[in-house]
């Protein structure tokens, strides 16, 4: 872990009230994970125990202890997308993904009238059918 970058992040939030989540978001974004080294550094700066920081990191789905370098397709699996048939697309998408691509279930992207929907990086994709989703996975 690049400790200079880590300390830059910590310094950027100095004086912020309730800084823990903004700091953790920045670390997750910069390093793809929040590992033990980062947890210890955050704990020291915020005058918390490492257990407290770890408790927060492990509570939220967005924070991960290890980086996953694979491309990630976030596929909405919540009720509105279920009603529009997302579950039927999952086997083909999983097969296309294999070990190379990670298909991460998410619960609602707020596009509930044009599902099934997925996100790849910053880009959103709506009205997916099996062919479109498989293509999205293959080109991820």
């Amino acid at each position: 872990m690049d400790t200079d970058r880590l300390h830059e992040i910590l310094a950027a939030h100095a004086g912020c009230k309730g800084a823990l989540l903004p700091i953790l978001h920045d670390i997750q974004h910069a390093f793809g994970c929040i590992d033990a080294v980062a947890e210890a550094a955050v704990a020291k700066v915020l005058n918390l125990s490492r257990a407290e920081v770890h408790g927060v990191v492990s509570f939220y789905h967005d924070f991960t202890p290890e980086a996953d370098p694979r491309p990630c397709i976030e596929l909405c699996r919540a009720e509105a997308c279920q009603a529009r048939g997302v579950e039927a697309l999952v086997p083909a998408a999983t097969a296309a993904a294999g070990e190379r691509v990670r298909i991460k279930p998410v619960y609602c992207l707020g596009l509930c009238s044009v599902g099934p929907v997925a996100r790849h990086g910053e880009l959103l994709h709506a009205r997916l059918d099996e062919a479109a989703l498989v293509k999205l996975v293959q080109t991820a």
């Binding site: 823990l20 408790g55 509570f59 967005d62």
Partner: peptide, 26 residues
């Protein structure tokens, strides 16, 4: 603006307040 971190329960008001404070969203 404060950004959540993927916890559905943080839509509950007291859990949301804990989250802004930098705690587990309990």
């Amino acid at each position: 603006v404060r950004v959540g971190a993927g916890a559905y329960v943080c839509g509950e008001e007291t859990s949301l307040l804990n989250s802004i404070e930098g705690k587990r969203g309990e």
